[in-house]
Amino acid sequence: MPEAATSSLTLVPVGWVVLAGAIVLGLAWFAATVDGVATARAEASPTGLGRPLREVARLMRQRRRATVEADTPLWRIGSGGLVVIATLMVIVVPLGPWTVFDSPVGVVWFNAMDVCVWALVWLTGWGPNSAHGLVGGYRFLAHGLGYELPLMFALVAPPIAAHSLRVGDVAAAQHGLWFVVWMPIAFLVYLIGVLGFSVWGPFSAAVGSDIAGGVAAELSGLDRLLFLTGRYALLAAGAAFAVPMFLGGGAGPLLPGWLWVIVKTIVVLTALVLARRRLPVLRPDLFMEVGWLVLLPAALVQVLVVSVIAVWRG
């Protein structure tokens, strides 16, 4: 295979994907801890820091449920697949000078992976043959139709400015001026999209308390653990991808590049996690119109502005 084009990054062997997965899980743990602390503070209950550990212990001990006439294989694929997708998303993110998968279309790859979440969440709701789960699955697709297209166009803006779909090139193109500074709308729409595909906070209608947990209503034990971990991992992957796209990648003073990537990821991730408790759920039937009539035109205007500037700068 002739390796196409030039890249400033060092490609590490495929085996390092294990480390990428480990980092994602570590960040997921961090996200769960932040959420646990925020919950403990708001509800005046003890033990915020230990919540993830206890919850993992509980779910490891709990038995998996079987429901009547469930479509078990599809159900297991749905709940277990989210962690895999999060890892596949994060492998295109350069960690300082290294990257596992230096795809020339890394940005589109990320986008393709986030679309896979549609399938997995729906399957998790479909599998157990339960009305609440099925409704949750429908709701997620309805949200998806609202956030996905704006997200796609938000992801288009940085590559236009960088003249490349390669994630490493996009990060390198921001020397001096981070894209977040002159693409704030794209950044905002991107974060909304991340909340969307992580089924988190304002976009958690699919697992809402009004449908007894929705797609997660029938999950227990290991399946529930994987599903919940997958949500946190998706948030982490979304936060990590924002770093090379909008926040200058590994650029920063004093610290080495890889550490800057992790620090910036943690900042974005914390902000995303804390959004959960502060906002009500955006009901899909209302958000659909906002997505198409507000977010999509806003993202398109942003892309237009970025294109004009990119042409002007040559």
């Binding site: 589109v108 986008n111 393709a112 679309v115 896979c116 549609w118 399938a119 729906w122 996905e148």
Partner: peptide, 10 residues
Amino acid sequence: ILMMVMEMAV
């Protein structure tokens, strides 16, 4: 991959 997964979900 992107298009077909999305399309099949719908």
